[in-house]
């Protein structure tokens, strides 16, 4: 089922949460809405679900205008951030709920068979008689997914699906959700503020800021060619150094970088810690080490440049650096953005 959002607007009281968002989601696609809190991503998801109505614009499911279809009839599966499992029902009763209240009447045996099938799918066989407070957070999340899938939704919507879980449980569930998606092929839209989660899971990432889409594309596109300083910063650690552009070159601390198409004057260059290296000798930007943090896969050097800017570098474990050492920061890769972009 294709989803098309056309110029969707939502305003809460006086606060405009979503400003004219347009988005096409292909059938069977797995798309992440990624953004900081307050970026409107959850509001967009809830409008697609029908839990909020739009103040402007349209939402189409396939060729059908779904903008004014109430959530009850919209045929979406919604997974809540805090699961929203019914605490007074067993796991099996939770999964069966949607089928029991459905306008399509099913026999008790049919429902029971389908519940078993879904519990197998989410690998919770044998837990059907437990209550939600008797299972772990990861298991609850899987029950919530099984419950949403039970009504054969046209579209699956997940609100921060792994937000309340431990980091390692999260990673497992993520891979597992990807597998389920590949198995069922349901068009899926999920919201997250965690870039790692979005990049790990999604076919396509939609990055939002202050109620607007700032960039959308495959994980590769948004990672390799971020179109703004915001995206660059939001997707991962980035150092910012002020630079001067002249004749298509950006200069910072004696290093020259390609900056074709930028107007002469001031600009900012953004550098990932991994795209920098530390060297005792020139060339590079002169800097002094202020701190070294050791990690399992390398060292992070915190340093201050001669111009007083703070930079962080991720270097191989063999790199020799001590607090107070003077040396040079070498730039392997960088992106230039106009100032206040």
């Amino acid at each position: 089922m294709k989803i098309r959002l056309d110029n969707v607007v939502k305003t809460f009281d006086t606060f405009r949460a979503v400003h004219g968002v347009s988005l096409d989601i292909g059938s069977g696609e797995l798309v992440a809405l990624l953004g900081p809190s307050g970026s409107g991503k959850t509001t967009i998801l809830r409008m697609v679900a029908g839990l909020e109505f739009t103040d402007g614009g349209t939402i189409h499911f396939g060729d059908q205008d779904a903008t004014d279809i109430p959530v009850r009839d919209r045929g979406v599966g919604f997974v809540f951030q805090h699961y929203a499992l019914f605490p007074h029902m067993t796991v099996a009763e939770n999964v069966a709920f949607g089928m029991k209240v459905s306008k399509v009447k099913r026999s008790a045996a049919e429902i029971a068979a389908r519940v078993d099938e879904l519990l197998r799918l989410v690998r919770l066989e044998g837990l059907g008689n437990r209550f939600p407070n008797q299972i772990s957070g990861g298991q609850r999340q899987r029950v919530a997914l099984a419950r949403a899938l039970a009504v054969d939704p046209k579209v699956l919507l997940l609100d921060e699906p792994f937000g309340a879980l431990d980091a390692n449980v999260r990673r497992d569930l993520r891979r597992w959700l990807r597998e389920i998606h590949e198995e069922l092929g349901i068009t899926t839209l999920f919201v997250t503020h965690d870039q790692e989660e979005a990049l790990d899971l999604a076919d396509r990432v939609v990055i939002l800021d202050q109620g607007r889409i700032v960039q959308e594309g495959t994980p590769e596109q948004v990672c390799r060619t971020p179109n703004s300083a915001f995206v660059m910063n939001f997707l991962g650690d980035a150092n910012r150094l002020p630079a001067t552009v002249s004749d298509g070159k950006a200069r910072v601390g004696g290093t020259e970088l390609e900056a074709a198409g930028f107007a002469n004057g001031r600009a900012n260059i953004y550098l990932r810690p991994r795209d920098l290296d530390w060297s005792a000798t020139e060339p590079g930007i002169a800097a002094t080490v202020t701190r070294v943090i050791d990690k399992p896969d390398g060292r992070r050097i915190l340093a201050t440049t001669v111009d007083g800017d703070h930079v962080e570098l991720d270097v191989v474990p063999e790199t020799v650096a001590r607090v107070g050492d003077s040396g040079f920061v070498r730039i392997h890769r960088a992106r230039v953005f106009a100032e206040a972009g």
């Binding site: 959530v71 209240v101 009504v151």
Partner: peptide
């Protein structure tokens, strides 16, 4: 909201 999204009146 969960109940409604599952189709309950």
């Amino acid at each position: 909201e969960a109940a409604t999204s599952l189709g309950a009146s």
